[in-house]
Simulated assay, not measured.
Amino acid sequence: MSSEAVDPEISFPTSLGMSTSSTISLLGEDLATDLMGQVGLTELVYRMVTLRTPTPGQIRMLDACLLALADHGFTPTAIAARLTYLSAPDSVQGAMAAGLLGGGSRFLGVTEDCGQFLHATIEGLQEVATTAQEWDEVAREVVATARAERRIIPGLGHPVHKELDPRTPALVRIAHETDSYGPHLALFEAIGRVHPEFLGRTLVLNGAGVVGAALADLGLPMKLLRGFALFARAGGLLGQLAEEMRMPVARDAYMFVETHARFVDPNTLAQGGGDGD
């Protein structure tokens, strides 16, 4: 805290961190004596976001969700982080940021998209279903409407896991074990059961989509679901950068593209005649 005089008419309210010359408080508790060594990072983030203390089951469920999204190998986000580190090894923060900036509609974004899609559907129900059969009926309406409107249902299908996304049954099992299974997961599972009736083929329930459903069932803000995906991936990117230091591959990736670059005459790509000149 600054030693300068404080104008009592000006205030910036916060329920999070505060500091004095000898103390740090967070959520109204002493960081050093009340939180450090007593509270895990997963619980702390849940509390900071919701201002609620999670149950042990909710902590376990959220931790499982974060683990499910932490690292998937040489994804574009990991490659971006490694290439940025190659270019600026003095800027770990830049490499981390580069990887996180790649979390969008195709990678990581499905967590937010699926959670919000399911939440909007549930919010529109006059009565929340209570049995699997009732959820199947809701799911049939959801899939039929999406088909009629030519919309994609977020979280259906995976580019690699064509037969099974191994995260899906694990997350559903943990949700049941922790009493965290709620309407969002119930609806998403129902969509997984009924969609072949409309599509004529079976698509897997994407694990990242299941995470979105699980986060929604944990009562986390819909607008921050992608933030949790990025929080998880930050840990994975740190591991990717550590491996890049041990076993670098970024330079080989860069040189492979560089040596296989092929010039294309821009005149062959021109479309239309401009203004006719």
Rank of each mutant, 00 (worst) to 15 (best):
A97H: 06
L100D: 01
P76Y: 06
F74W: 09
F74T: 07
A95N: 09
P76T: 08
L62N: 01
T111I: 14
C114N: 08
S87P: 08
A95P: 06
D113T: 05
L69E: 04
D90H: 15
L108S: 12
T75G: 01
P89A: 08
F74A: 07
F107C: 05
D90F: 12
D71K: 09
D63E: 08
C114F: 12
L101N: 12
L67P: 00
G102C: 09
R82W: 12
T75L: 05
S87F: 11
E112C: 00
V110T: 14
R82T: 13
R82Q: 09
A81F: 02
A81G: 01
G94N: 03
D90Y: 10
L108R: 03
L108M: 15
T77S: 15
L86Y: 14
P89L: 08
M96L: 15
L108F: 15
D90S: 15
L101D: 11
G73T: 07
S91T: 10
F74C: 03
C65K: 03
P89Q: 06
A88D: 14
R60H: 11
E112M: 14
A88I: 00
D113G: 01
D63L: 03
T111D: 03
M96E: 09
G109R: 09
T84N: 12
T77I: 05
L62Y: 13
A88E: 12
E112R: 10
L101K: 06
L66C: 11
G99R: 01
T75Y: 10
V92E: 12
G99Q: 01
G94K: 04
A78M: 09
G99P: 01
Q93V: 03
T77W: 03
A95Q: 05
L108P: 04
C65F: 13
M61A: 13
L86I: 08
S105Q: 13
D71E: 15
V110Y: 05
C65M: 06
R82G: 04
